[in-house]
Design a protein around this nucleic acid. Structure first.
Lengths: 129, 129
DNA sequence: GTACACATGTGTGTTTTACATATAGGAGGT
DNA sequence: ACCTCCTATATGTAAAACACACATGTGTAC
């Protein structure tokens, strides 16, 4: 890699003197998002990449990491994949959710409900209630 | 450091074969939590450490990182600190929120509301609505 | 032929979190 | 005196999560 001047994006950064920009993101949120999209329909990485912002709200899905997440999910038996033949254009690897992957999605949903409650607790206290 | 057998805790881990445990945590959530506690009352690190679980919901606040976050906040002018004299026992460094720190807390609150909405979007779609 | 959209990847630096350890004051027991 | 425990602040470092850059190949439009 060539040396670069830019530094990695941070969760909190000064956008201009005395002004802060904050992103409150859920850790590894791309994983449950992928699982949910795959529960709706088996599809390939590039399409998931385009569909993710509708779930995550931001366009910040890194394709490099996306493909790594998909491979990790497959290693853990949470999705299966096969090369899609027949279609014109570049080869596509289609991913499908397994039963265990479905159970993991359920766990994520519970975890996200708990996370939402913690945020509510925080906001209630912030608003002085 | 001595070699250790344990590996770092992960966001997702297999608790037993075919069973997954998930934690959906907001990145850097300890920062807004500290700011909120300091808005309520100026106090020192160790007390913040004990008060944090009431906001974060989990007992997983690392004291090492807590003190580093406090120092980072001070470097950025978001809190000020002074050594507390007079009291018996080990010296305490008392932290106080600045006006700019208050503004950052407001930014965090907005960011957390947006985060909450993203979680809602996900859960609505998960539940098929 | 070259520019662009599609499609799947690897390499690597940065940020954030987790775990271990160091240092020190005071209280209470033996 | 010595030991243990609670309070209090801090550093060292490894792992996990994330961001950014680059490599490779197919097909379509100009």
């Amino acid at each position: 890699m060539r040396p670069r001047g830019g530094r990695g994006a941070r969760c909190r950064r000064m956008v201009r003197p005395g002004h802060w920009g904050v992103h409150a993101r859920v850790e590894r949120f791309s994983e449950p998002a992928l699982l949910l999209l795959l529960r709706e329909r088996a599809t390939h990485g590039y399409e998931l990449l385009e569909a993710l912002p509708s779930l995550t709200g931001e366009a910040r899905v890194d394709m490099g990491n996306l493909y790594r997440v998909l491979r990790a999910l497959e290693e853990d038996g949470l999705v299966t994949s096969r090369w899609e033949a027949g279609a014109p254009g570049p080869a596509k690897r289609t991913y499908e959710l397994t039963a265990e992957g479905k159970r993991l999605l359920d766990e994520w949903a519970s975890a996200l409900r708990r996370s939402r409650e913690r945020i509510d607790t925080f906001l209630d206290r912030y608003e002085g209630r």
